[in-house]
């Protein structure tokens, strides 16, 4: 009973009661955060003295990068929960997470490209940060494909869980790529041990957008997990001829 909040959600029926209660509020919070985040990012934040207006791309780019990595850590944790503890909800939640993580990684890659063109003079370079981020996107796509590759959905769940666990080595590579290799991508400026190196006028909108991306991630994962529970229930009913 060390982690009651997790165990509480282990039971699908209880999970559904919990998510049905929380989803409307979380949806409203998500909409509010996105509205204020976009307002601050596009209208309140000043242009950067070096990047000019293109700094506004950071507000959609950086949170997408953070949460696509966090979502992958969750996916790997769910993979472990499925393979090691045969957790009943882990496989369903993993199916719910993967497309959200893929979308976040895609937003990160494309928005970064639109920043790189005016600031670096190129849409893309095969540098360590960009390449490892592209690999993260492909890991998500691989997870989605594998989990749907078998007629027996539980076999697909296990294969995808193995991929999620193997791919987790890519997370530290993404995080530390800017320190380990001399890359075109700049090093971390928020997640630093000695505090962020960004002026509050830029940091505040960035953090509000980060909260907006997180709220959307949680909202979508709960909603999609609920859908997967229902889908699995329909599958079971079809198998038992009900």
């Amino acid at each position: 009973m060390a982690m009651p909040s997790i165990h509480f959600l282990a039971n699908p029926a209880r999970f559904q009661r919990f998510s049905a209660r929380i989803l409307p509020w979380l949806g409203a919070l998500t909409a509010l955060l996105w509205a204020s985040g976009l307002y601050m990012a596009l209208l309140v934040a000043p242009p950067d003295y070096q990047q000019g207006e293109t700094v506004r791309i950071m507000f959609v780019h950086v949170p997408a990068a953070w949460w696509s990595m966090a979502a992958y850590a969750l996916l790997a944790g769910l993979g472990a929960a499925l393979l090691v503890w045969r957790h009943p909800l882990a496989a369903l939640m993993a199916r719910a997470v993967a497309p959200v993580g893929a979308a976040y990684a895609l937003v990160c890659l494309v928005s970064g490209s639109f920043w790189g063109r005016p600031m670096w003079g190129t849409w893309w370079v095969w540098d360590a940060r960009l390449t490892s981020m592209l690999l993260l996107f492909f890991l998500y796509l691989g997870h989605i494909a594998l989990s749907r590759a078998f007629d027996d959905s539980e076999r697909g769940d296990r294969a995808a869980a193995v991929l999620a666990l193997v791919g987790v080595v890519n997370l530290p590579v993404i995080k530390f790529s800017v320190d380990w290799w001399n890359t075109l991508h700049q090093p971390a400026s928020v997640m630093k041990l000695d505090g962020p190196a960004i002026h509050p006028s830029i940091l505040t909108p960035l953090l509000v957008m980060a909260a907006a991306y997180l709220a959307l991630l949680v909202f979508l994962v709960l909603l999609r997990t609920e859908t997967e529970i229902g889908r699995r229930r329909l599958e079971t009913a079809a198998l038992t001829g009900r």
Partner: peptide, 18 residues
């Protein structure tokens, strides 16, 4: 500031994908 051609598509992909 002349960079609208890069900024708006970056926001566009976020809104479209999410």
């Amino acid at each position: 500031g002349g960079h609208g051609a890069y900024i708006w598509p970056a926001y566009g992909i976020a809104v479209a994908a999410l």
